[in-house]
Design a protein around this nucleic acid. Structure first.
Length: 918
RNA sequence: GGGCGCGUAGCUCAGUUGGUAGAGCGCCGCCCUUACAAGGCGGAUGUCGCUGGUUCGAGCCCAGCCGUGCCCACCA
């Protein structure tokens, strides 16, 4: 490392994401690592198609979490050496975009109708060029390693050709057809919408009882309705054929009040005998159920409500032109005056509303294009059933997906909008031609409507790669590996991609579907602009850095919805800062020249570099392998939250809190045990402190960076200091930690990486580590487990006994099993193990033995004795609890032997400890 | 109406095949120990929604109840 960089590292005591992140991101982009060559095939490569954000949208928390999930997977794959393509692009988002542009026009005092269709669409394209790049920049700020250089848009020419091709082929197969059918009409957008775009809202309403006189003159039938205005389109009355009250009426006729139309009374199983009056007015033109009944019975279909939400001429001149609300009032008034209103009652029920405009859905019969989904659904169900597509978490999504597909209904795909993929159908008189090009001959008129946005979104994983052309991209990256998204669009998008993917490519579009948490506002409500509950991820990035936001979001996520936790983001920033500072300690403190081999693919393991590893070195190296293995498994299972928190815990609690503290002694040239306040004791280790078989002393003790070890070792008294092992171990741990954390926190790790010794290139293309189980060291883990427990116990004792933190207590280890770690125990618990000949004044029981405290000014045994009563009580409680448990014959007999044995050992240990304290 | 979740420390949430309840933040005490005070060390805090059952043993399994949320659905 150059002196310049060294002093830079030395001076920056705080990690500043703002300065680092954009700089680091630029290095990745310059290196072109986000854009893999389209070589090889999809089985060896790795790809994810990003859920395309709305072209004029802005990054929200959902994008940030979802994006981080994908980026972790993509970055890991890239580090594994795979060609990793994260397919990027935006969605034209038909209605959403059209509404925005219409609003802009309204502000200018004009409308799209004044502009005309062509000019309006031109205007939308302008809008897109103005705002389409916003979300791209925002993904960059998040650090997302999308293939920005190969951006797609669902309205690109090539994409549009794919859409038309799909429509045409489905039509040819008879799966797409045009029909007059009942649709969900949204008076807000003046378009039909699909079932999935309808949401139910609870409404307090009124149920009206209306008498329909029988034509025979012998009384009347009373029906119940919440929409009396639709009676103007009634064409029948239906009763349940099994309803004894009415069976005699079936086949008779009634007179429609206000209108005078003669209505047949029909029998249909659909009618519930126990609801309302048991008699149902049938309005095939304005109610989905009535529509079905009407078709079953061949009833006339009358429309009295128009696409503008107002009553049509067919409603009669008293009502034509009124809104449905006004018409309802007028109808009720007229009925009341005519004596036909038998009564009303309050009624609360669910009413369909447009998800998009919020307006009440008006069921209408309309000429629309439909896609018959049943044939497409079968293979999509199979794909999930046989595991070619897997949901994570498996439940409940797998079942929900299957249930929906098994009960699938036709999909209304036409929309009465201007912005979108124009339906590739041409008409001339009664002729219809469907195809990507207009047919020859004059007089053909193209369909005015566009396709549902989700129709084009459903082709996303393969249309982005050039389908229907057999492109290199398609061969290299389709099928994709993972789809990561939220549960809200499993039907709208995921299921349709599976169906269309299988239909048109013969393969499932992705193998895994990772469903990530929905991030709720801190108060538990949905995050939304209109509620004022939204938290802008960009604000969080500006304040805490992208890595902190990435860590925080992933850490707070789970298999269910979670509330946004600012603390988790803060925790992410703290982690970044801690990483930075631990790295400073390591990089400024290690002996030069012992860095892992410059071969950045596989750094040399410290055990292969030196034979003088100590127990703590072997311990942390073993823990490192374990966290490596665990992280890998967790990412494979899409349990990124566990992976993030597991890495945090390893790094902070094990590497920093314990290993780095232990390592400082050797880094700062201490010779093992500090036996006296003297810093430079040459007396060497006492009491058999170190277990290492052979301690070489060929390296220098100075704290300076430039080692002059070789000169030193030849002169003066032998220094029993070897910084090789600790340096190699520290660098190896840091190297590995940076690699493991890089997919999640790419900026800070890349920045630190740049200070690592050797020519290592970019971390983002360095090799992803694989755990080596041969490096697991049960022995060292057990020994350090005892050491850590002992130190903690001693610290607790000191605190309880009122010993000053700075005081160094003369002490002696007894019991033997801690001897190998005596030096570290002495350092960390601030003991002086030098004096051996005085009688102890107190004994502290610890895991694996005990520590005798020798007389000193800093320790008052009487005071200590009084204070540790609480500890004694606690031990006594444990002993009692275990004695009771082991005294239970049924437990001893029936519990597994190892459980009983474990309890016995614990009891034994507690009893011995208590005896010492007693 | 059907289905699926959730209810664990003051807050937000983890709790893998049942074996003495965890994290972050917050709180209390002590430390400016030259990587980090956005730090370190130590500590306190939970009848794991309620009731019953299975089991030697239940936060975890079973039944019921209460509270709460989401998804689906064509009862006027």
């Amino acid at each position: 490392m150059s002196d310049e960089r060294l002093s830079e590292l030395s001076e920056r005591t705080r990690y500043s994401p703002r300065e680092v992140e954009s700089k680091v991101f630029a290095r990745w982009e310059e290196a072109g690592v986000f854009s893999p060559e389209p070589e090889g095939d999809a089985s060896e490569n790795f790809s994810i198609a990003v859920p395309p954000p709305n072209v004029t949208g802005a990054l929200h928390m959902g994008h940030a979490l979802n994006g981080t999930y994908q980026d972790v997977l993509i970055r890991r794959a890239r580090m594994r050496g795979q060609r990793a393509k994260w397919i990027f692009g935006t969605d034209h988002a038909g209605i959403a975009t059209q509404v925005k542009v219409e609003q802009a026009l309204a502000n200018e005092g004009t409308t799209k109708e004044e502009l005309g269709r062509e000019a309006f669409i031109e205007r939308v394209w302008q809008w897109r060029s103005q705002y389409g790049g916003v979300i791209t920049d925002q993904f960059r700020q998040l650090g997302a390693s999308l293939d920005y250089a190969d951006e797609r848009f669902t309205m690109d020419d090539a994409y549009a050709r794919a859409v038309a091709e799909v429509f045409t082929r489905l039509y040819a197969k008879g799966l797409i057809y045009r029909d007059n059918y009942m649709v969900n009409w949204d008076p807000g957008t003046r378009s039909a919408i699909s079932d999935l775009e309808v949401e139910q809202r609870r409404l307090d309403d009124t149920l009206y009882m209306i008498d329909y006189p029988l034509e025979s003159g012998s009384g009347s039938v009373t029906v119940a309705t919440v929409r009396p205005e639709t009676m103007l389109a009634d064409t029948a009355i239906a009763v349940n054929p099994g309803d004894e009250r009415y069976t005699r009426l079936i086949g008779e006729r009634a007179v429609l009040p206000l209108v005078g139309r003669s209505l047949p009374i029909i029998g249909d199983e659909y009618v519930k005998m126990d609801f309302g009056t048991g008699a149902l007015k049938i309005t095939p033109g304005h109610d989905p159920n009535d529509f079905e009944i009407g078709r079953r019975h061949g009833l006339e279909e009358i429309s009295v409500i128009g696409e503008d939400g107002r009553m049509t001429e067919a409603a009669g001149e008293r009502f034509a032109g009124l809104t449905t609300d006004d018409a309802q009032k007028a109808v009720v008034k007229a009925l009341r005056e005519g004596g036909c209103l038998a009564g009303t009652q309050p009624y609360t029920h669910d009413v369909p509303h447009s998800h998009r405009s919020g307006m009440r859905i008006e069921p209408l019969i309309s000429l629309q294009w439909f896609c018959d989904m049943e044939q497409l659904a079968g293979p999509a169900i199979d794909a999930v059933r046989d595991g070619r597509v897997r949901f994570s978490p498996e439940r409940p999504h797998t079942q929900v997906y299957r249930d929906w597909l098994e009960n699938i209904r036709p999909w209304c795909v036409s929309r009465q909008l201007w912005w979108g993929h124009r339906i590739p159908a041409w008409y001339r008189g009664g002729e219809i031609h469907v195809g990507t090009e207009a047919p020859d001959g004059d007089g053909w008129v193209r369909d005015e409507d566009v396709l549902d946005t989700w129709f084009s979104s459903g082709l996303w994983p393969f249309a982005t790669l050039g389908w229907p052309e057999q492109t290199e991209q398609l061969r290299a990256f389709y099928p994709t590996d993972v789809l990561a998204t939220g549960r809200d669009i499993i039907f709208l998008w995921v299921a349709r991609m599976v169906m269309l993917g299988i239909e048109f490519t013969g393969e499932v579009p992705f193998a895994d579907v990772s469903i990530n948490s929905t991030i709720m506002a801190p108060d538990g409500r949905r995050m939304s602009k209109s509620l004022g509950t939204g938290i802008d991820p960009l604000d969080e990035i500006a304040e805490h850095g992208a890595d902190a936001v990435r860590f925080g979001l992933v850490a707070m996520s789970s298999t269910q919805d979670v509330r946004f936790s600012a603390d988790r983001v803060r925790q992410g920033l703290d982690l970044a800062n801690k990483l930075w500072n631990a790295s400073r300690l390591i990089l400024l403190g290690v002996q030069q020249g012992v860095e892992p081999s410059p071969d950045r693919a596989q750094p040399q393991h410290p055990a292969d570099v030196t034979e003088s590893l100590l127990a703590e070195d072997r311990w942390i190296l073993s823990r490192l392998e374990r966290v490596t293995a665990r992280t890998e498994a967790q990412i494979d299972a899409f349990e990124l939250s566990s992976a993030a928190l597991g890495l945090y815990d390893f790094f902070w609690s094990e590497l920093c809190d314990w290993y780095l503290e232990m390592a400082k002694g050797r880094l700062h040239e201490e010779t093992g045990v500090r036996s006296s306040p003297d810093r430079r004791s040459d007396s060497g280790p006492e009491t058999g402190v170190r277990s290492s078989p052979d301690r070489r002393s060929d390296s220098g003790p100075e704290t300076g960076v430039r080692s002059s070890a070789d000169q030193r070792s030849d002169s003066g008294p032998p220094q029993r200091v070897d910084r090789t092992a600790v340096s190699a171990t520290l660098l190896f741990c840091l190297d590995r930690t940076l690699r493991l954390l890089h997919p999640l926190m790419p900026h800070v790790t890349e920045e630190i990486w740049s200070f690592m010794p050797g020519e290592r290139g970019l971390l983002t293309t360095a090799q992803w580590p694989a755990a080596d189980p041969r490096r697991f060291d049960e022995h060292a883990e057990a020994e350090l487990g005892r050491t850590i427990a002992a130190v903690t116990e001693l610290r607790r004792y000191r605190e309880l006994a009122g010993v000053k933190p700075s005081a160094i207590l003369p002490a002696r280890l007894v019991g033997g099993s801690l001897d190998g770690m005596a030096g570290q125990i002495a350092r960390l618990a601030r003991l002086d193990l030098a004096e051996v000949d005085r009688a102890p004044v107190a004994e502290v029981p610890v895991a694996g033995g005990a520590v005798e405290l020798l007389p000193s000014d800093a320790f008052d045994p009487d005071e200590a004795g009084r204070r540790i009563q609480a500890q004694r009580d606690k031990l006594a409680d444990e002993v009692r609890r275990l004695e009771h448990k082991l005294g239970n014959e049924r437990f001893v007999q029936r519990a597994p032997a190892e459980v009983v044995q474990g309890e016995r050992e614990k009891l034994d240990e507690y009893q011995r400890a208590l005896a010492r304290l007693g």
